[in-house]
Design a protein around this nucleic acid. Structure first.
Lengths: 204, 204
DNA sequence: ACCTGAACACCGTTCAAGT
DNA sequence: ACCTGAACACCGTTCAAGT
């Protein structure tokens, strides 16, 4: 029963989900796939290459053209898809962040966003490019934090609140522990509003 | 000549700058400080704890209250300070991203931002908290990408451009390789515009 | 209090050799 | 073509023992 490239990727994905990015080692992956660790290097030239392939696969679906509709809704769809993709596996955002632009699938997703901003929203190609980049930075930043191990946050926040003794810290803590879906929506809305300003300025 | 906690932190910072986050090992740090690796565990309970202390120090200055002025300018100052802090050491953004909210200094920086948004811009405490969180996600996302090793980006982008054969990919590539300062400014402006919408909606 | 020495249980990667 | 076996040069962490 020989191993194919896709089997390795699937095994890596499962192991990532089980043990996290720091727990994903070539030796454990070998064990899962019933293969010596060294054998994996026939399929991938390095662990880094394997991780990049994994990251590429993760964001593969994002680039599909969203259904017709208002430009802001279509862009929101892309942003949601990217977040969903990153959330698809443990530490997905960290994984993708470290191999971001090098991935063809990421480039394609960026292009899809640009199309919408140019054709539907009327931005210049340059503006569109800068905008999709900024938006992706927000999505990735948010999702990294969302996926970060929350272990003892509550404790540390409570301590900070006590030490500083401030209502603002309490409100900040409440926001941090709030529903990530809603927090993402809020930040996305903020960025979209920023884009709207540009769009309106362009066609008054 | 005994080692103090601060000496360890300073050594770790230097080593981080020299070898990057993946190259920062307890054994190399021990060598730099003329100490056995195990000896470091008297000063820090784990490597993780050391990294967290390093991250905390890095963003320590961000929380200082910015000079008086329009609220958007003061918020921009905070965002620039955070980026500068992250750029202060190699892989600083990655380092901070993984230990983000647990750091008291980060909490303090968030509080400073909230003060401005509440007192100067007239947002509710809740809105202010959600806003500083979203903004910090953008800053961190941007800076992680900015600090990512660029090794063979140009090659891969050129290949993607060739393969897809699209002007949009060319424009996207140009944007990605553009001056990070200007790209950061653009994205920050986008988010600030989004906040302005909220502010105007709040006090029409 | 602060560190050494030495060990334990791991890593990624290479590469001759097997099938 | 695909993998084994074994090695190389590393890791983080613990802990008795030294000073």
């Amino acid at each position: 029963m020989q191993l194919r490239r896709d089997d390795v990727l699937r095994g890596a994905r499962d192991l990532l989900d089980a043990d996290g990015l720091d727990g994903l080692t070539m030796r454990k992956l070998g064990a899962v796939l019933k293969v010596q660790a060294g054998g994996l290097y026939w399929h991938f030239s390095s662990k880094q290459a394997l991780l990049e392939a994994l990251a590429g696969d993760l964001v593969a679906g994002v680039a599909e053209t969203p259904p017709a509709g208002p430009w802001d809704q279509r862009i929101a769809t892309l942003a949601h898809r990217l977040r969903r993709a990153l959330l698809g596996v443990r530490d997905g955002a960290r994984l993708v962040a470290e191999t971001f632009v090098t991935q063809p699938t990421t480039v394609l997703a960026g292009r899809t966003g640009m199309r919408i901003l140019i054709d539907d929203a009327g931005l210049s190609p340059e503006q569109a490019a800068w905008t999709v980049i900024a938006l992706s930075h927000y999505v990735i930043g948010h999702t990294i934090e969302e996926q970060a191990p929350r272990l003892d946050w509550a404790d540390k926040l409570a301590k900070a609140e006590q030490r500083i003794g401030d209502d603002l810290i309490h409100d900040l803590g409440a926001a941090i522990t709030a529903d990530p879906d809603r927090r993402f929506e809020f930040g996305l809305g903020l960025v979209l509003d920023g884009i709207r300003r540009r769009v309106e300025a362009g066609q008054p």
